[in-house]
Amino acid sequence: MDKQHIAELLDPAAISRAEALGFHARYVVEGYMAGEHKSPYRGFAIEFAQHREYAPGDDTRHLDWKVLARTDRYFIKQYEQETNYVAHILLDGSESMQYGSGKLTKLQYAKMMAACLSYLILHQRDAVALGIFDEQMRDFAPRSNSKGTIHSIMSRLAAYQGAHRTDIAKTLHDLALQLRRKGIVIIISDFFDEEEKILEGIRHLRFGGHEVIVLHTLDVEELEFPFQGLVEFQGLENLPKVLTRPREIRETYKKVFGEFCTKLRRGCERNHVHYVQVNTGQPLAQVLSSYLTFRLRTAKSKY
C-alpha cells in the first residue's frame, strides 16, 4: 500500500474515541487568536478552576473577596486558562519509515496518526501546522485553524512518498529557530538516527518553550526481531546488506534496541517531553486514546 487513499487516513474508531478526550496543551501556550498578550491570564479564555488557602507571598489580587467576606478566611482564587495553540506535527517521512511487517508501514501508520491528531486539534479550533521531513523539510502545511484545512493536510499526507535518509536533529533545530510562539510540537518518527543529536534538537525546542511530544513509531518486528533461519537484511536508507541468523543475535538485538529506546525515553523525560512508543501492530484508536487519557490525567494533575 504505497499510496494511501485520503479517506483511509482518518481512522473512524480512533477519531471517535479521541474526540471525547480532546487534545489539550500541557503548558502555557501562546494563542495567536488572543493577540500579543504577555500574560496568559489575560487571555480570553480564563476559567475558574479552584480555591487554595492563601499563603504569605501570594498576590493579594487573587484573593477571593467574596469568600473572605462570608467566611473570614483567605482563599486564593485559582483559574484554569484555556487558550488556543498551534500544534506542529512533524512527520518523519524518511525511507526507514517505509518498513512494515503487517498491513501498514510505519509511514502509513504515522500518516494516519498525523491525520487523526490534525483532525482532533482542528476540531477543537486549535491550529495545526504539518511538516514532513527527512534530511530536510520536504513539505510544510502552514498553520491553520480552519476545519477545512484537514483536507489540505490529508492530501499532503497521502501524496507524500518517503525516499531519503533521516536527519531529525537538523529538522528540529531548524524548526526551533523558526517557531516564534510557544506551541506543541508532535514528532512522529522511528528516530533511527543518533539519539544524542535527536535529544539535542528536542532540547532546543523545549528551550523555546514548546511542549514536545515524541511518538516513537516502531514496527512490531523491529521490537521483537522474530526472524528464523538465515536472513539477508537489506538496509533501507542505503545501508549495506547483512547476512545472519537472527535467532542467534535476537537477544543482543533486543538489548541494543531496548537501550536505544530507553535512552530516548530517558532523554525525553529529562526534558519533560512525553515519550510514547507506538507499536504499529496495535490499533491506532487504542494508541491514541490511551495516550490522550494519560495526557488528560497528567494535565489535570499539573494544575
Binding site: F192, E222, G235, L236, E237
Partner: peptide, 10 residues
C-alpha cells in the same frame, strides 16, 4: 536465505 528489507540496520 530469506531477504528482508530492513530499517533498523544499525
Amino acid at each position: 536465505f530469506r531477504k528482508v528489507i530492513w530499517a533498523a540496520m544499525r
